[in-house]
Design a protein around this nucleic acid. Structure first.
Length: 545
RNA sequence: GGUCUCGUAGUUCAGUUGGAUAGAACGCAGGUUUCCUAAACCUGAUGUCGCAGGUUCGAGUCCUGCCGAGACCGCCA
Protein backbone atom coordinates (compact mmCIF):
# COMPACT_ATOMS: atom_id res chain seq x y z
CA UNK A 1 0.00 0.00 0.00
CA UNK A 2 2.70 2.43 1.02
CA UNK A 3 4.87 1.70 -1.96
CA UNK A 4 1.88 2.32 -4.18
CA UNK A 5 0.87 5.70 -2.75
CA UNK A 6 4.28 7.15 -2.00
CA UNK A 7 5.40 7.83 -5.60
CA UNK A 8 2.02 9.31 -6.45
CA UNK A 9 2.22 11.56 -3.45
CA UNK A 10 5.78 12.56 -4.28
CA UNK A 11 4.60 13.55 -7.71
CA UNK A 12 1.72 15.61 -6.36
CA UNK A 13 4.03 17.32 -3.90
CA UNK A 14 6.26 18.43 -6.75
CA UNK A 15 3.28 19.89 -8.54
CA UNK A 16 2.30 22.10 -5.63
CA UNK A 17 5.97 23.08 -5.31
CA UNK A 18 6.63 21.55 -1.94
CA UNK A 19 10.30 20.96 -1.11
CA UNK A 20 11.80 17.82 -2.63
CA UNK A 21 12.94 16.52 0.71
CA UNK A 22 9.51 16.65 2.25
CA UNK A 23 9.11 13.66 4.48
CA UNK A 24 6.21 11.44 3.55
CA UNK A 25 4.80 9.63 6.49
CA UNK A 26 2.20 7.05 5.59
CA UNK A 27 0.59 4.97 8.24
CA UNK A 28 -2.33 2.77 8.90
CA UNK A 29 -4.86 4.77 10.91
CA UNK A 30 -5.91 3.38 14.25
CA UNK A 31 -9.51 4.14 13.40
CA UNK A 32 -10.87 1.91 10.67
CA UNK A 33 -13.19 4.62 9.34
CA UNK A 34 -10.17 6.77 8.62
CA UNK A 35 -9.39 4.59 5.68
CA UNK A 36 -6.63 2.13 4.83
CA UNK A 37 -3.75 4.52 4.75
CA UNK A 38 -3.27 8.02 6.00
CA UNK A 39 -0.77 10.79 5.65
CA UNK A 40 -0.14 13.96 7.54
CA UNK A 41 2.16 15.62 5.00
CA UNK A 42 -0.20 18.55 4.62
CA UNK A 43 0.04 19.25 8.34
CA UNK A 44 3.79 19.14 8.21
CA UNK A 45 3.95 21.50 5.26
CA UNK A 46 1.62 24.09 6.76
CA UNK A 47 4.32 26.15 8.32
CA UNK A 48 6.73 25.92 5.44
CA UNK A 49 4.18 26.92 2.80
CA UNK A 50 2.45 29.35 5.12
CA UNK A 51 -0.93 27.98 4.23
CA UNK A 52 -3.71 26.26 6.09
CA UNK A 53 -3.11 22.51 6.19
CA UNK A 54 -6.55 21.73 4.81
CA UNK A 55 -5.90 23.98 1.83
CA UNK A 56 -2.61 22.22 1.13
CA UNK A 57 -4.38 18.90 1.43
CA UNK A 58 -6.95 20.00 -1.12
CA UNK A 59 -4.28 21.03 -3.59
CA UNK A 60 -2.46 17.76 -3.07
CA UNK A 61 -5.56 15.70 -3.64
CA UNK A 62 -6.31 17.65 -6.82
CA UNK A 63 -2.81 16.93 -8.10
CA UNK A 64 -2.92 13.27 -7.17
CA UNK A 65 -3.17 10.93 -10.13
CA UNK A 66 -4.86 7.90 -8.67
CA UNK A 67 -6.32 5.07 -10.60
CA UNK A 68 -9.98 4.62 -9.71
CA UNK A 69 -9.74 0.87 -10.05
CA UNK A 70 -7.12 0.81 -7.27
CA UNK A 71 -8.19 3.62 -4.99
CA UNK A 72 -11.83 4.05 -4.17
CA UNK A 73 -11.56 7.15 -2.10
CA UNK A 74 -9.26 10.00 -1.13
CA UNK A 75 -10.59 12.15 1.66
CA UNK A 76 -9.43 15.10 3.63
CA UNK A 77 -10.25 14.81 7.26
CA UNK A 78 -9.72 16.49 10.58
CA UNK A 79 -7.08 19.20 10.59
CA UNK A 80 -5.72 18.12 7.19
CA UNK A 81 -5.09 14.40 7.09
CA UNK A 82 -5.44 12.74 3.72
CA UNK A 83 -7.03 9.32 3.96
CA UNK A 84 -6.86 6.71 1.26
CA UNK A 85 -9.22 3.85 0.66
CA UNK A 86 -8.35 1.02 -1.68
CA UNK A 87 -10.64 -1.11 -3.75
CA UNK A 88 -10.99 -4.84 -3.16
CA UNK A 89 -9.53 -5.28 -6.64
CA UNK A 90 -6.35 -3.57 -5.52
CA UNK A 91 -5.93 -5.92 -2.58
CA UNK A 92 -6.76 -8.93 -4.69
CA UNK A 93 -4.08 -7.97 -7.18
CA UNK A 94 -1.50 -7.66 -4.42
CA UNK A 95 -2.42 -11.04 -3.07
CA UNK A 96 -1.52 -12.56 -6.41
CA UNK A 97 2.00 -11.28 -6.00
CA UNK A 98 2.26 -12.80 -2.52
CA UNK A 99 1.49 -16.22 -3.82
CA UNK A 100 4.02 -16.05 -6.55
CA UNK A 101 6.75 -15.39 -4.02
CA UNK A 102 5.65 -18.21 -1.71
CA UNK A 103 8.40 -19.08 0.77
CA UNK A 104 10.27 -16.00 -0.36
CA UNK A 105 7.33 -13.76 0.54
CA UNK A 106 8.45 -11.03 2.89
CA UNK A 107 12.01 -10.92 1.63
CA UNK A 108 13.08 -7.55 0.38
CA UNK A 109 16.32 -6.44 -1.14
CA UNK A 110 16.49 -2.79 -0.20
CA UNK A 111 19.57 -3.55 1.83
CA UNK A 112 20.87 -6.23 -0.43
CA UNK A 113 24.30 -7.60 0.19
CA UNK A 114 25.21 -5.50 3.21
CA UNK A 115 27.86 -7.51 4.99
CA UNK A 116 26.72 -7.76 8.56
CA UNK A 117 28.15 -9.43 11.62
CA UNK A 118 25.80 -10.24 14.46
CA UNK A 119 27.52 -11.27 17.65
CA UNK A 120 25.46 -12.89 20.36
CA UNK A 121 25.51 -15.34 23.25
CA UNK A 122 29.31 -15.00 23.60
CA UNK A 123 29.33 -16.59 27.02
CA UNK A 124 32.70 -17.81 28.24
CA UNK A 125 32.83 -21.57 28.74
CA UNK A 126 32.76 -21.38 32.51
CA UNK A 127 29.48 -23.18 32.92
CA UNK A 128 26.10 -23.97 31.42
CA UNK A 129 24.13 -21.14 29.88
CA UNK A 130 21.78 -19.62 32.41
CA UNK A 131 18.31 -18.30 31.64
CA UNK A 132 19.59 -14.77 31.24
CA UNK A 133 21.69 -15.90 28.29
CA UNK A 134 18.47 -17.11 26.72
CA UNK A 135 17.26 -13.62 26.04
CA UNK A 136 20.54 -12.69 24.44
CA UNK A 137 20.52 -15.84 22.33
CA UNK A 138 16.93 -15.48 21.17
CA UNK A 139 17.29 -11.79 20.41
CA UNK A 140 20.56 -12.20 18.54
CA UNK A 141 19.45 -15.13 16.47
CA UNK A 142 16.14 -13.50 15.56
CA UNK A 143 17.80 -10.22 14.66
CA UNK A 144 20.17 -12.16 12.42
CA UNK A 145 17.16 -13.81 10.76
CA UNK A 146 15.40 -10.50 10.26
CA UNK A 147 18.44 -8.87 8.69
CA UNK A 148 18.85 -11.86 6.46
CA UNK A 149 15.26 -11.41 5.28
CA UNK A 150 15.80 -7.81 4.29
CA UNK A 151 18.83 -8.78 2.27
CA UNK A 152 21.86 -8.58 4.54
CA UNK A 153 24.67 -11.04 4.13
CA UNK A 154 24.75 -12.12 7.77
CA UNK A 155 27.52 -13.79 9.73
CA UNK A 156 26.53 -15.11 13.16
CA UNK A 157 29.40 -14.89 15.56
CA UNK A 158 30.21 -16.13 19.05
CA UNK A 159 33.08 -14.44 20.87
CA UNK A 160 34.73 -16.13 23.79
CA UNK A 161 37.73 -16.05 26.00
CA UNK A 162 39.26 -19.26 27.29
CA UNK A 163 42.25 -17.70 28.99
CA UNK A 164 41.10 -15.11 31.48
CA UNK A 165 40.49 -14.89 35.19
CA UNK A 166 37.11 -16.53 34.96
CA UNK A 167 38.63 -19.57 33.34
CA UNK A 168 41.42 -19.73 35.90
CA UNK A 169 38.73 -19.73 38.51
CA UNK A 170 36.92 -22.52 36.78
CA UNK A 171 40.12 -24.56 36.62
CA UNK A 172 40.76 -24.12 40.33
CA UNK A 173 37.19 -25.06 41.12
CA UNK A 174 37.34 -28.23 39.07
CA UNK A 175 40.65 -29.19 40.59
CA UNK A 176 39.29 -28.69 44.09
CA UNK A 177 36.29 -30.93 43.35
CA UNK A 178 38.61 -33.42 41.70
CA UNK A 179 40.69 -33.69 44.84
CA UNK A 180 37.59 -33.75 47.02
CA UNK A 181 36.11 -36.66 45.08
CA UNK A 182 39.37 -38.53 45.42
CA UNK A 183 39.13 -38.16 49.17
CA UNK A 184 41.65 -35.40 49.67
CA UNK A 185 41.06 -32.69 52.19
CA UNK A 186 40.83 -29.42 50.27
CA UNK A 187 39.66 -25.92 50.74
CA UNK A 188 37.35 -24.75 47.99
CA UNK A 189 38.41 -21.46 46.34
CA UNK A 190 36.51 -18.60 47.88
CA UNK A 191 35.22 -17.16 44.64
CA UNK A 192 35.09 -20.50 42.88
CA UNK A 193 32.17 -21.90 40.93
CA UNK A 194 29.97 -23.87 43.26
CA UNK A 195 27.58 -25.36 40.75
CA UNK A 196 26.83 -29.06 40.77
CA UNK A 197 28.22 -29.34 37.25
CA UNK A 198 31.75 -28.82 38.56
CA UNK A 199 31.48 -32.20 40.26
CA UNK A 200 30.36 -33.70 36.98
CA UNK A 201 33.36 -32.34 35.18
CA UNK A 202 35.65 -33.60 37.94
CA UNK A 203 34.01 -37.03 37.80
CA UNK A 204 34.58 -37.10 34.06
CA UNK A 205 38.22 -36.30 34.55
CA UNK A 206 38.60 -39.07 37.11
CA UNK A 207 36.85 -41.53 34.82
CA UNK A 208 38.94 -40.71 31.78
CA UNK A 209 42.24 -39.63 33.25
CA UNK A 210 42.44 -41.23 36.66
CA UNK A 211 44.40 -39.70 39.48
CA UNK A 212 47.33 -38.26 37.60
CA UNK A 213 46.40 -34.65 38.37
CA UNK A 214 46.30 -34.77 42.16
CA UNK A 215 49.35 -32.65 42.66
CA UNK A 216 48.61 -28.94 42.94
CA UNK A 217 50.73 -27.58 40.12
CA UNK A 218 50.15 -24.94 37.49
CA UNK A 219 50.28 -27.61 34.80
CA UNK A 220 47.59 -29.69 36.46
CA UNK A 221 45.33 -26.74 37.06
CA UNK A 222 45.84 -25.70 33.49
CA UNK A 223 44.79 -29.16 32.37
CA UNK A 224 41.56 -28.68 34.32
CA UNK A 225 40.93 -25.50 32.38
CA UNK A 226 41.09 -27.47 29.16
CA UNK A 227 38.74 -30.17 30.43
CA UNK A 228 36.33 -27.56 31.71
CA UNK A 229 36.32 -25.61 28.48
CA UNK A 230 35.65 -28.70 26.44
CA UNK A 231 32.92 -29.94 28.74
CA UNK A 232 31.18 -26.60 28.98
CA UNK A 233 31.32 -25.84 25.30
CA UNK A 234 29.84 -29.19 24.45
CA UNK A 235 26.97 -28.38 26.77
CA UNK A 236 26.55 -24.81 25.53
CA UNK A 237 26.41 -25.95 21.93
CA UNK A 238 23.84 -28.57 22.81
CA UNK A 239 21.69 -25.94 24.49
CA UNK A 240 21.91 -23.63 21.49
CA UNK A 241 21.14 -26.55 19.22
CA UNK A 242 17.96 -27.10 21.20
CA UNK A 243 17.02 -23.49 20.48
CA UNK A 244 17.83 -23.88 16.81
CA UNK A 245 20.83 -21.58 17.04
CA UNK A 246 23.94 -22.09 14.95
CA UNK A 247 26.87 -19.72 14.79
CA UNK A 248 29.01 -19.38 11.70
CA UNK A 249 32.09 -18.30 13.58
CA UNK A 250 33.45 -18.98 17.05
CA UNK A 251 36.01 -16.31 17.68
CA UNK A 252 38.55 -16.99 20.39
CA UNK A 253 39.95 -13.89 22.04
CA UNK A 254 43.32 -15.64 22.17
CA UNK A 255 43.75 -15.31 18.41
CA UNK A 256 43.90 -11.55 18.90
CA UNK A 257 47.07 -12.09 20.92
CA UNK A 258 48.47 -14.71 18.60
CA UNK A 259 48.03 -12.51 15.57
CA UNK A 260 49.54 -9.50 17.29
CA UNK A 261 46.32 -7.49 17.17
CA UNK A 262 46.58 -6.56 20.80
CA UNK A 263 50.10 -5.18 20.41
CA UNK A 264 49.05 -3.45 17.24
CA UNK A 265 46.12 -1.80 18.98
CA UNK A 266 48.33 -0.53 21.78
CA UNK A 267 50.86 0.80 19.31
CA UNK A 268 48.31 2.54 17.17
CA UNK A 269 46.49 4.08 20.12
CA UNK A 270 49.85 5.41 21.31
CA UNK A 271 50.61 6.75 17.85
CA UNK A 272 47.49 8.82 17.81
CA UNK A 273 48.33 10.06 21.28
CA UNK A 274 45.42 8.51 23.10
CA UNK A 275 47.30 6.63 25.81
CA UNK A 276 49.50 7.51 28.75
CA UNK A 277 51.27 5.69 31.56
CA UNK A 278 50.34 6.15 35.17
CA UNK A 279 51.29 4.04 38.18
CA UNK A 280 52.77 1.47 35.83
CA UNK A 281 49.48 1.01 33.99
CA UNK A 282 48.50 2.10 30.51
CA UNK A 283 45.47 4.38 30.31
CA UNK A 284 43.17 5.17 27.43
CA UNK A 285 42.41 8.87 27.22
CA UNK A 286 38.70 9.48 27.18
CA UNK A 287 38.36 12.54 29.33
CA UNK A 288 37.89 14.93 26.41
CA UNK A 289 34.89 12.80 25.43
CA UNK A 290 33.34 13.39 28.79
CA UNK A 291 34.21 9.97 30.13
CA UNK A 292 36.69 8.69 32.67
CA UNK A 293 40.06 7.54 31.42
CA UNK A 294 40.31 3.76 31.53
CA UNK A 295 43.10 1.35 32.22
CA UNK A 296 43.69 -0.88 29.24
CA UNK A 297 46.89 -2.56 30.42
CA UNK A 298 47.27 -3.30 34.13
CA UNK A 299 50.51 -2.67 35.94
CA UNK A 300 50.91 -6.46 35.95
CA UNK A 301 51.22 -6.25 32.16
CA UNK A 302 47.90 -7.94 31.53
CA UNK A 303 45.34 -6.15 29.40
CA UNK A 304 41.92 -5.40 30.83
CA UNK A 305 38.94 -6.66 28.85
CA UNK A 306 38.52 -3.32 27.10
CA UNK A 307 41.69 -3.69 25.08
CA UNK A 308 40.82 -6.98 23.39
CA UNK A 309 37.31 -5.62 22.89
CA UNK A 310 38.74 -2.70 20.94
CA UNK A 311 41.08 -4.94 18.97
CA UNK A 312 38.23 -7.35 18.29
CA UNK A 313 36.01 -4.65 16.83
CA UNK A 314 38.83 -3.32 14.68
CA UNK A 315 39.38 -6.87 13.52
CA UNK A 316 35.72 -7.21 12.54
CA UNK A 317 35.93 -4.01 10.52
CA UNK A 318 39.07 -5.34 8.84
CA UNK A 319 37.20 -8.47 7.91
CA UNK A 320 35.03 -6.20 5.80
CA UNK A 321 31.83 -6.03 7.80
CA UNK A 322 29.83 -2.95 7.02
CA UNK A 323 27.54 -3.38 9.96
CA UNK A 324 28.54 -4.86 13.28
CA UNK A 325 25.84 -5.68 15.74
CA UNK A 326 26.66 -6.59 19.32
CA UNK A 327 23.86 -8.06 21.35
CA UNK A 328 24.71 -7.22 24.92
CA UNK A 329 23.16 -7.36 28.34
CA UNK A 330 22.63 -4.09 30.15
CA UNK A 331 25.54 -4.91 32.45
CA UNK A 332 27.92 -4.14 29.58
CA UNK A 333 26.39 -0.80 28.84
CA UNK A 334 29.22 1.21 30.27
CA UNK A 335 31.94 -0.31 28.12
CA UNK A 336 30.26 0.29 24.77
CA UNK A 337 31.03 4.00 24.37
CA UNK A 338 34.67 3.40 25.32
CA UNK A 339 35.08 0.74 22.68
CA UNK A 340 33.36 2.72 19.93
CA UNK A 341 35.33 5.81 20.89
CA UNK A 342 38.59 3.90 20.65
CA UNK A 343 37.60 2.43 17.29
CA UNK A 344 36.97 5.96 16.11
CA UNK A 345 40.40 7.06 17.33
CA UNK A 346 41.95 4.33 15.24
CA UNK A 347 40.16 5.52 12.14
CA UNK A 348 37.46 2.87 12.19
CA UNK A 349 33.92 3.78 11.30
CA UNK A 350 32.40 3.69 14.77
CA UNK A 351 28.89 4.38 13.51
CA UNK A 352 28.89 0.97 11.85
CA UNK A 353 29.00 -0.62 15.28
CA UNK A 354 25.51 -0.91 16.60
CA UNK A 355 24.97 -2.25 20.09
CA UNK A 356 21.67 -3.89 20.89
CA UNK A 357 21.36 -3.58 24.62
CA UNK A 358 18.79 -5.71 26.31
CA UNK A 359 17.69 -5.30 29.89
CA UNK A 360 17.90 -8.07 32.42
CA UNK A 361 15.36 -10.81 32.85
CA UNK A 362 13.78 -11.46 36.19
CA UNK A 363 12.13 -14.76 36.84
CA UNK A 364 9.11 -15.00 39.04
CA UNK A 365 7.84 -18.17 40.63
CA UNK A 366 5.11 -18.39 43.22
CA UNK A 367 4.90 -14.62 43.16
CA UNK A 368 8.51 -14.38 44.30
CA UNK A 369 11.56 -13.36 42.38
CA UNK A 370 13.99 -16.17 41.70
CA UNK A 371 17.62 -15.15 41.65
CA UNK A 372 19.99 -16.99 39.40
CA UNK A 373 23.66 -16.94 39.99
CA UNK A 374 26.30 -19.21 38.57
CA UNK A 375 28.26 -19.15 41.75
CA UNK A 376 25.47 -19.67 44.23
CA UNK A 377 25.06 -23.22 42.99
CA UNK A 378 21.29 -22.97 43.23
CA UNK A 379 20.85 -22.03 39.63
CA UNK A 380 18.29 -23.05 37.06
CA UNK A 381 19.93 -23.53 33.71
CA UNK A 382 18.63 -22.50 30.32
CA UNK A 383 18.45 -26.22 29.54
CA UNK A 384 15.96 -26.78 32.32
CA UNK A 385 13.89 -23.89 31.07
CA UNK A 386 13.82 -25.42 27.59
CA UNK A 387 12.90 -28.80 29.04
CA UNK A 388 10.06 -27.29 31.05
CA UNK A 389 8.48 -25.13 28.38
CA UNK A 390 9.89 -26.23 25.08
CA UNK A 391 12.20 -24.32 22.80
CA UNK A 392 9.39 -22.46 21.02
CA UNK A 393 7.97 -20.97 24.20
CA UNK A 394 11.41 -20.03 25.50
CA UNK A 395 12.45 -18.33 22.27
CA UNK A 396 9.17 -16.55 21.91
CA UNK A 397 8.98 -15.34 25.51
CA UNK A 398 12.40 -13.80 25.22
CA UNK A 399 11.58 -11.80 22.11
CA UNK A 400 7.93 -10.94 22.71
CA UNK A 401 8.89 -7.90 24.76
CA UNK A 402 10.94 -4.97 23.59
CA UNK A 403 14.64 -5.64 24.13
CA UNK A 404 15.00 -2.46 26.08
CA UNK A 405 12.47 -3.23 28.77
CA UNK A 406 13.00 -5.28 31.87
CA UNK A 407 11.48 -8.65 31.13
CA UNK A 408 9.50 -10.52 33.70
CA UNK A 409 9.37 -14.23 33.01
CA UNK A 410 6.64 -15.80 35.07
CA UNK A 411 7.56 -19.45 35.42
CA UNK A 412 4.19 -20.48 36.83
CA UNK A 413 2.31 -18.73 34.09
CA UNK A 414 4.39 -20.21 31.32
CA UNK A 415 4.10 -23.67 32.87
CA UNK A 416 0.46 -23.80 33.91
CA UNK A 417 -1.15 -21.87 31.15
CA UNK A 418 0.84 -23.06 28.26
CA UNK A 419 -2.33 -23.50 26.23
CA UNK A 420 -3.01 -19.78 26.49
CA UNK A 421 0.49 -18.99 25.49
CA UNK A 422 0.81 -16.39 22.76
CA UNK A 423 3.14 -18.54 20.72
CA UNK A 424 0.55 -21.32 20.56
CA UNK A 425 -1.99 -18.81 19.37
CA UNK A 426 0.16 -18.16 16.32
CA UNK A 427 1.08 -21.77 15.74
CA UNK A 428 -2.53 -22.80 16.12
CA UNK A 429 -3.55 -20.46 13.30
CA UNK A 430 -1.04 -22.17 11.03
CA UNK A 431 -2.12 -25.64 12.13
CA UNK A 432 -5.75 -24.71 11.65
CA UNK A 433 -5.11 -23.58 8.10
CA UNK A 434 -3.18 -26.76 7.40
CA UNK A 435 -6.13 -28.72 8.74
CA UNK A 436 -8.58 -27.02 6.43
CA UNK A 437 -6.34 -27.54 3.43
CA UNK A 438 -6.04 -31.21 4.34
CA UNK A 439 -9.78 -31.40 4.65
CA UNK A 440 -10.26 -29.78 1.25
CA UNK A 441 -7.87 -32.25 -0.29
CA UNK A 442 -9.65 -35.20 1.26
CA UNK A 443 -12.86 -33.88 -0.30
CA UNK A 444 -11.11 -33.93 -3.65
CA UNK A 445 -10.88 -30.15 -3.85
CA UNK A 446 -7.55 -28.98 -5.12
CA UNK A 447 -6.11 -25.58 -4.49
CA UNK A 448 -6.57 -23.72 -7.75
CA UNK A 449 -3.97 -21.00 -8.01
CA UNK A 450 -5.61 -19.70 -11.14
CA UNK A 451 -8.93 -19.08 -9.42
CA UNK A 452 -10.26 -15.54 -9.38
CA UNK A 453 -9.89 -13.65 -6.11
CA UNK A 454 -12.81 -11.43 -6.91
CA UNK A 455 -15.26 -13.12 -4.54
CA UNK A 456 -13.13 -11.90 -1.61
CA UNK A 457 -15.13 -8.82 -0.64
CA UNK A 458 -16.22 -9.29 2.97
CA UNK A 459 -14.71 -7.16 5.72
CA UNK A 460 -12.98 -10.13 7.35
CA UNK A 461 -11.50 -11.16 4.03
CA UNK A 462 -10.21 -7.73 3.14
CA UNK A 463 -8.83 -7.19 6.64
CA UNK A 464 -6.94 -10.46 6.43
CA UNK A 465 -5.52 -9.60 3.01
CA UNK A 466 -4.39 -6.20 4.26
CA UNK A 467 -2.64 -7.80 7.19
CA UNK A 468 -0.90 -10.30 4.94
CA UNK A 469 0.29 -7.47 2.72
CA UNK A 470 1.96 -5.72 5.62
CA UNK A 471 4.43 -8.47 6.33
CA UNK A 472 7.32 -6.99 4.31
CA UNK A 473 6.82 -3.63 6.00
CA UNK A 474 6.87 -5.28 9.42
CA UNK A 475 10.17 -6.93 8.55
CA UNK A 476 11.64 -3.66 7.39
CA UNK A 477 10.57 -1.93 10.56
CA UNK A 478 11.97 -4.75 12.67
CA UNK A 479 15.25 -4.52 10.75
CA UNK A 480 15.42 -0.76 11.12
CA UNK A 481 14.84 -0.90 14.86
CA UNK A 482 16.62 -4.24 15.38
CA UNK A 483 13.54 -5.25 17.28
CA UNK A 484 12.18 -8.80 16.92
CA UNK A 485 9.15 -7.95 18.98
CA UNK A 486 7.68 -6.12 16.01
CA UNK A 487 7.41 -9.45 14.18
CA UNK A 488 5.79 -11.14 17.15
CA UNK A 489 3.25 -8.35 17.38
CA UNK A 490 2.66 -8.44 13.64
CA UNK A 491 1.97 -12.16 13.68
CA UNK A 492 -0.41 -11.79 16.58
CA UNK A 493 -2.44 -9.31 14.56
CA UNK A 494 -2.31 -11.63 11.58
CA UNK A 495 -3.64 -14.44 13.76
CA UNK A 496 -6.49 -12.26 15.03
CA UNK A 497 -7.43 -11.37 11.45
CA UNK A 498 -7.27 -14.99 10.39
CA UNK A 499 -9.32 -16.39 13.27
CA UNK A 500 -12.01 -13.78 12.72
CA UNK A 501 -12.17 -14.62 9.04
CA UNK A 502 -12.28 -18.32 9.80
CA UNK A 503 -15.06 -17.85 12.31
CA UNK A 504 -17.26 -15.91 9.90
CA UNK A 505 -16.75 -17.76 6.67
CA UNK A 506 -17.00 -21.33 5.49
CA UNK A 507 -14.28 -22.38 3.13
CA UNK A 508 -14.82 -25.90 1.89
CA UNK A 509 -18.55 -25.49 2.45
CA UNK A 510 -18.80 -22.08 0.81
CA UNK A 511 -21.93 -21.16 -1.13
CA UNK A 512 -20.30 -21.22 -4.52
CA UNK A 513 -17.28 -22.92 -6.00
CA UNK A 514 -15.88 -19.54 -6.97
CA UNK A 515 -16.08 -18.36 -3.36
CA UNK A 516 -14.56 -21.59 -2.13
CA UNK A 517 -11.63 -21.44 -4.54
CA UNK A 518 -10.92 -17.80 -3.74
CA UNK A 519 -10.96 -18.51 0.00
CA UNK A 520 -8.66 -21.45 -0.45
CA UNK A 521 -6.22 -19.14 -2.12
CA UNK A 522 -6.55 -16.65 0.73
CA UNK A 523 -5.91 -19.51 3.10
CA UNK A 524 -2.80 -20.52 1.21
CA UNK A 525 -1.45 -16.98 1.30
CA UNK A 526 -2.15 -16.78 5.04
CA UNK A 527 -0.35 -20.04 5.57
CA UNK A 528 2.68 -18.79 3.68
CA UNK A 529 2.81 -15.63 5.74
CA UNK A 530 2.50 -17.46 9.07
CA UNK A 531 5.11 -19.97 8.04
CA UNK A 532 7.58 -17.32 6.93
CA UNK A 533 6.96 -15.19 10.03
CA UNK A 534 7.37 -18.09 12.43
CA UNK A 535 10.51 -19.09 10.61
CA UNK A 536 11.94 -15.62 11.16
CA UNK A 537 11.24 -16.01 14.86
CA UNK A 538 12.88 -19.40 14.83
CA UNK A 539 9.90 -21.29 16.19
CA UNK A 540 8.28 -24.41 14.89
CA UNK A 541 5.70 -24.24 12.10
CA UNK A 542 3.30 -27.07 12.99
CA UNK A 543 1.04 -28.73 10.42
CA UNK A 544 -1.20 -29.94 13.22
CA UNK A 545 -1.59 -29.43 16.93
C1' G B 1 28.19 11.48 43.41
C1' G B 2 28.06 10.08 37.85
C1' U B 3 26.18 7.22 33.28
C1' C B 4 22.32 4.21 30.90
C1' U B 5 17.30 1.97 30.71
C1' C B 6 12.35 1.71 32.26
C1' G B 7 7.52 3.94 34.48
C1' U B 8 0.74 3.24 29.98
C1' A B 9 -5.88 -0.84 32.72
C1' G B 10 -5.86 -5.27 38.72
C1' U B 11 -1.17 -7.89 36.30
C1' U B 12 2.32 -8.43 32.03
C1' C B 13 3.10 -5.40 28.04
C1' A B 14 2.05 -2.92 22.68
C1' G B 15 1.55 1.88 20.88
C1' U B 16 5.35 2.21 13.64
C1' U B 17 11.04 8.40 12.25
C1' G B 18 5.27 13.48 17.05
C1' G B 19 -0.92 12.69 14.47
C1' A B 20 -7.38 12.01 14.73
C1' U B 21 -11.61 8.95 20.14
C1' A B 22 -4.60 5.40 24.02
C1' G B 23 -4.77 -0.81 22.53
C1' A B 24 -3.84 -6.27 23.39
C1' A B 25 -3.08 -10.50 26.34
C1' C B 26 -3.90 -12.59 31.11
C1' G B 27 -7.47 -12.28 34.95
C1' C B 28 -12.90 -11.12 35.97
C1' A B 29 -18.59 -11.41 34.31
C1' G B 30 -21.60 -13.46 30.45
C1' G B 31 -22.46 -15.73 25.54
C1' U B 32 -21.23 -18.81 20.68
C1' U B 33 -20.16 -25.45 18.42
C1' U B 34 -25.71 -31.01 14.82
C1' C B 35 -20.88 -27.16 10.63
C1' C B 36 -13.48 -27.18 7.57
C1' U B 37 -9.22 -27.79 14.58
C1' A B 38 -13.45 -24.15 20.72
C1' A B 39 -5.49 -23.92 21.69
C1' A B 40 -11.04 -20.27 18.46
C1' C B 41 -14.84 -16.33 18.25
C1' C B 42 -18.30 -12.50 20.41
C1' U B 43 -20.14 -8.98 24.40
C1' G B 44 -19.00 -6.21 29.02
C1' A B 45 -16.19 -3.35 32.99
C1' U B 46 -11.33 -1.11 34.00
C1' G B 47 -6.74 4.49 32.65
C1' U B 48 -4.35 11.32 36.54
C1' C B 49 -0.06 7.37 29.94
C1' G B 50 4.77 8.39 37.43
C1' C B 51 4.54 14.11 38.75
C1' A B 52 5.42 19.27 37.10
C1' G B 53 6.85 22.52 33.46
C1' G B 54 8.45 23.42 28.22
C1' U B 55 8.70 22.93 22.60
C1' U B 56 3.96 23.24 18.54
C1' C B 57 -1.29 23.41 14.67
C1' G B 58 -0.91 18.68 17.66
C1' A B 59 2.86 15.16 22.99
C1' G B 60 2.02 8.44 25.71
C1' U B 61 5.99 9.70 21.97
C1' C B 62 10.69 15.24 21.84
C1' C B 63 13.35 18.70 25.92
C1' U B 64 14.20 20.09 31.32
C1' G B 65 13.46 19.14 36.49
C1' C B 66 11.59 15.94 40.25
C1' C B 67 9.81 11.01 42.15
C1' G B 68 10.09 5.64 41.78
C1' A B 69 12.35 0.69 39.85
C1' G B 70 16.58 -1.79 37.58
C1' A B 71 21.65 -2.11 35.44
C1' C B 72 26.49 -0.08 35.39
C1' C B 73 30.37 3.15 37.27
C1' G B 74 37.52 -1.63 39.56
C1' C B 75 44.48 -2.30 37.32
C1' C B 76 37.14 -8.38 37.20
C1' A B 77 34.81 -10.01 32.22
Amino acid sequence: MKSYIEPLLRNALAQISAPDDTEIILERPKQADHGDLSTSVALGLARHLKKAPRLIAEELVAALAVDKSDVSGVEIAGPGFINFRFTPAFFQGRLNAVQQKAEEYGRTNNEDGIKTNVEYVSANPTGPLHPGHGRNAALGDTIANILNWVGHDVTREYYFNNAGNQMRNLAKSIHARYLELLGHDVEFPEDGYRGEYIYEIARDVIENEGEKYVEVTDENIDAMRGFGEQWNFALIKKTMEALGIHHDTFFNETTLYEEGKIEQTITRLAEVGRTYNKDGALYLKLEDLGRDDRVIVKSSGEPTYRLPDIAYHMEKLERGFEKIIDVLGADHIDAVPDVTAAVGMLGGEASNIVPVIHQMVSFVEGGEQVKFSKRSGKAITLDELIEDFGADVVRFFFIMRGANTHLEFDLDLAREQSDKNPVFYLQYAHARISGVLRHAESEGIALNMGASLEPLQADEEITLIKQILEFPEALERAARDLEPQIIAEYLRELAVAFHKFYHEHRIVGANTDAERDARLRLLAASKTTFANGLMVLGVDVPERM
